[in-house]
Amino acid sequence: MKIPLRVLLSVTPLILGVAAALALPALQVQVPVLIFRADLRNLILILTGLASLVLLACALRDWQLAERQRQALEEALRQQEQARRRFLRRLDHEVKNPLTAMRAALANLEDAGQEQPRPVKDINLQVERLSQLVGDLRKLAELEERPLERLPVDLNDLLAEVVEMALSQPAYAGRELHLVVSKVPWPLPPVTGDRDLLWLVFYNLVDNALKYSERKHIVEVRAQEDGRAVTVEVADNGPGIPPADLERIFEELYRGVNARGIEGSGLGLALAQRIIQRHGGSLRVRSRAGPGEPGGVVFTVRLPL
């Protein structure tokens, strides 16, 4: 166990006092203010001991205060998160009926049989897009409540499948995508979870890496374990994510400056993070995309064993 620095500092007077008491010869001195005489060594021990006690008490009080503040902050964050989700759900709910009515109305126009004018076609497309978005948001919210399948998942297979699937997409044909899975001294042990959801996470990360980089860039998927967790990294040497975007990319519907103009729902990473969190793991990102930086992104998934 690590002893906090603060505790060490607090007991320093006592340690010094003990050292001094050991070093000094026995000597009776007159205690100032008080009327009796005492052994100097005892006096030093008592005084330094008292000093240490006071310091320890202060440390304890500060620690308790910090703990209380941390709890209050966590509670506030949790409530904020809940309020945000409630809002999303209500919005979703209120948007559904008008959208359903619009789609029915549009279907009636379509049924009239003639070739549709361009604006009607556009409205149709956009209404479909909105419906998709509403549906995706709902499914994201649903992930929180759905029971999670908890079965052994072989990541060796799963990652190979993800890479194969990505390379089979016409848009990514011929891209440089490498899979490095540690095999020595043993293959990756299975993690516990929902294979289909984990598949979705890794496919999302690989798809993002390919989508937001160019043909000349390399994407690498690497996996290893350290006895407590499996770490899977999806890395690319593409343009990277600017620092201002980095902390926001896991939010629903957030799209970074580099993502504009590239098709996407803005939900993939939010989804990935939600899934990994539900597996008791973590999803982190590092990037070097500041001015003069070389670029590149690494997404790191850690799944407990």
Partner: peptide
Amino acid sequence: GWDYPAGTR
């Protein structure tokens, strides 16, 4: 309960 495009596989 979800139908993200990548899921068809």
